[in-house]
């Protein structure tokens, strides 16, 4: 039995962490650096870039678009996830495997393939690109993740709990609401969260399928082409990081609290 971690391994992990954090360290440095050029040496502290960021109207439109798309994607992929996971866990039906394969297929497809194939259809049908086309694309790629998460939740649930509820006179819908839903609730929340995150950060599909309304990544992409806008991008990136860390901590705190309450 080993008692302490080997030194070589510990050193490797530390170096690896430095590698992981290297790019992120630059975000706050250049977000607060008083120079329009992103280079060393540094010039001094400023909040100027955050002020300028505040003045970017397109940013707010892009952020709103991204939020709408991300929430819709999260809800849709979770609904599909519940339906699929439930069907797979409880029923035997013709075509079960190929159908499941089709729903999970986006896991094995590079995003650009999905973006391109949908673009072809939309162009051939002469349909306009809109937020809806992006939502469809994102739901396609997020659904397999929701299914995986929810399948675990459904498979872990003891079937006799459901039977007990029916035995005690509850209806099927009532059983779903009073027994199944609370038991898979942690899975539902994880599924919503993962759908939201996947959609919020997705670029390629959005790049192919957005019309005149950009999403946040598409907007960032357009900024990256203008060197004068780069400090603003740094400021934006820093804000995104801080915001997601705050949200993540709140989520974790809530999870711990509910774990304590349920005695888990």
């Amino acid at each position: 039995m080993k008692h302490s971690s080997p030194i070589a391994l510990s050193v490797f992990v530390v170096i690896y962490l430095v590698f992981l954090y290297a790019p992120i360290f630059l975000l706050p440095i250049f977000a607060f650096n008083d120079s329009a050029v992103i280079a060393f040496p540094l010039s001094g502290f400023t909040l100027h870039w955050f002020k300028e960021l505040w003045g970017e109207d397109v940013l707010f439109r892009a952020a709103t678009n991204s939020l709408i798309i991300a929430v819709s994607t999260a809800v849709l992929s979770t609904c599909f996830g519940v339906l699929t996971a439930r069907a797979m866990a409880r029923h035997q039906f013709i075509g079960k495997k190929p159908i499941f394969g089709l729903i999970m297929a986006p896991l094995f497809l590079p995003e650009i393939i999905i973006g391109v194939s949908m673009l072809i259809v939309l162009l051939q049908l002469g349909l306009a690109l809109s937020l809806w086309t992006v939502i469809i694309g994102h739901t396609l790629i997020a659904t397999p993740f929701s299914v995986s998460i929810l399948a675990t939740a459904f498979n872990n649930m003891d079937r006799s709990l459901e039977e007990a509820s029916l035995d005690l006179g509850e209806t099927r819908i009532g059983t779903f609401r009073r027994v199944i839903l609370p038991l898979v609730a942690p899975g539902l929340i994880s599924s919503l969260l993962i759908g939201f995150i996947i959609s919020l950060d997705e670029f390629v599909i959005a790049f192919f399928l957005t019309g005149t309304d950009p999403t946040l990544p598409v907007y960032i992409w357009s900024l990256l082409r203008f060197p004068s806008k780069l400090p603003i991008v740094m400021a934006l990136g820093f804000l995104l990081l801080v915001l997601s860390l705050i949200l993540l901590s709140l989520f974790e705190a809530a999870r711990r609290r509910s774990e304590r309450l349920t005695g888990g």
Binding site: R90, I103, S117
Partner: peptide, 28 residues
């Protein structure tokens, strides 16, 4: 009956995948 119940659940996500993933891929 079990098959039917399974289909009723998975029909919607399957339809979505069929129309918006498989069909576009075949068109491609």
């Amino acid at each position: 009956r079990d098959s039917f119940a399974g289909w009723r659940l998975i029909g919607l996500p399957f339809g979505f995948g069929f129309l918006l993933l498989l069909t576009p891929l075949l068109l491609m």
